[in-house]
Nucleic acid binder design. Structure first.
Lengths: 226, 226
DNA sequence: AGAATGAATAATGAATGCAAAATTCAAGTC
DNA sequence: GACTTGAATTTTGCATTCATTATTCATTCT
């Protein structure tokens, strides 16, 4: 019955939370940047009240560091934090794979096969950007199939926290091939509806991803102060 | 050098976030309760600005539902949400067990043995409250030994979300025995430093816990409106 | 009487104002 | 010349104020 999708009114604070999160994830606001309330108020044409509410939320999400009486900075991702995050994301992906296997239907599999094939194509042609996009979408699709919104949300939140490493984590050709092989094996497990296998593979896949990021971060050294 | 533990000044908003979270977890604010900003301002003697910042954070944590222009309510835990949360908590506990096994030293094991023995004592004497406390502390100790602060924080957050079920989830004697048996097996795995085994056991333990809660929730029916 | 309408009241969303704290920067000291 | 000291400025934290939206309640109409 409810065809009319009830008018979504958002508060300024909610709107700002989303906008700022995007700016951080997309790199408009870089890790370590000072967050100037007056400047952002000017930028968005709002007062400090809703802006501060948004910052508090982002701080709770771990995207912003707020120090009392000293204002905020975009959270800087420390190598240690990456080392802590990836094992967690590994088990969450593993769980998603397990659940997805149990609920997978023919349509789901067909869609994943298509996305996978397209992604492999991009890999063959060395097209990094579309490859990355498809890769992300495949993982999102698995979470969708898993049918656990809380799990998906949690994963999304952790994913956002490591936004900063997106830019450093350019794969070497060997690592890229490794990732493709991981995905091939994952597809095989999906076709076989082998939840335990997929679970293990996804965890391993994340472990590889962690290695890539970790190498990149170590290579950069520890950029302590911006 | 930094022996002096730098003076912790907290903002009112931060303070309020903690207080309100406690009130929700402890049941002073019950699931479904309307949150009146004026009343809470009176109660704490603060203005609405920091209170609203705190509410926004709690909303982000999933403890409070905020509806634009209509104020907030303490989040009500739906059986479906429990069904979504427990598998997640299961894999997080499993990971904690695995990590803890790898880092466990003699002191850690001794401490866990002592806590376990004390908990079993409470079980034998049917002392539910101290049993529960010790049970919680054992799980916390495993997370501490695991040495992954992000993991511990995440688990804590999920734990808080299911605050409401704490009160409904009184175990039957059979379930209680089952829980003790789970813990016995977990201790055995710890002594053997068998991370894989502990991991599996902890996940199963959480599955049992989920069963208990789920039975209780279904029994209560779905209290839709407060 | 029961539903519907509209005024009165209360709550929320956001801007402004103000005091306290931090930062900046210039002057002074060693 | 580098380090300290302290005033001027900026920024932050919080209270207050104002506008908008909900809610309540009395009144009217069927």
């Amino acid at each position: 019955m409810n065809e009319h999708p009830l008018i979504a009114r958002r508060s300024l604070a909610t709107e700002l939370t989303g906008r700022l999160r995007d700016m951080i994830v997309e790199g408009t606001l870089k890790a370590g940047d000072k967050i100037s309330e007056p400047d952002l108020c000017d930028l968005f044409g709002v007062s400090r009240t809703p802006l501060r509410e948004a910052l508090k939320v982002l701080a709770a999400e771990g995207l912003v560091d707020l120090t009392p009486n000293r204002g905020g900075r975009v959270a800087r991702i420390a190598p240690e934090a990456v080392e802590e995050l990836f094992p967690i994301m590994g088990v969450l992906e593993a769980l998603a794979g397990e659940l997805a296997c149990a609920r997978l239907d023919a349509d789901d599999l067909a869609r994943l096969e298509a996305m996978h094939a397209e992604m492999v194509g991009h890999w063959r042609r060395g097209e990094w950007v579309p490859y990355s996009g498809l890769n992300r979408r495949i993982h999102e699709e698995i979470f969708r199939i898993a049918g656990n919104a809380t799990l998906a949300g949690l994963y999304q939140n952790l994913m956002v926290r490591i936004h900063a490493v997106r830019f450093v984590a350019r794969k070497t050709p060997e690592r890229w091939t490794e990732a493709i092989e991981d995905h091939e094996r994952m597809m095989a497990a999906l076709r076989a509806r082998d939840g335990a296998a997929l679970s293990g593979l996804m965890r391993e896949h994340l472990r590889h991803k962690a290695d890539v990021v970790h190498e990149a971060l170590r290579q950069l050294g520890a950029p302590e102060q911006g």
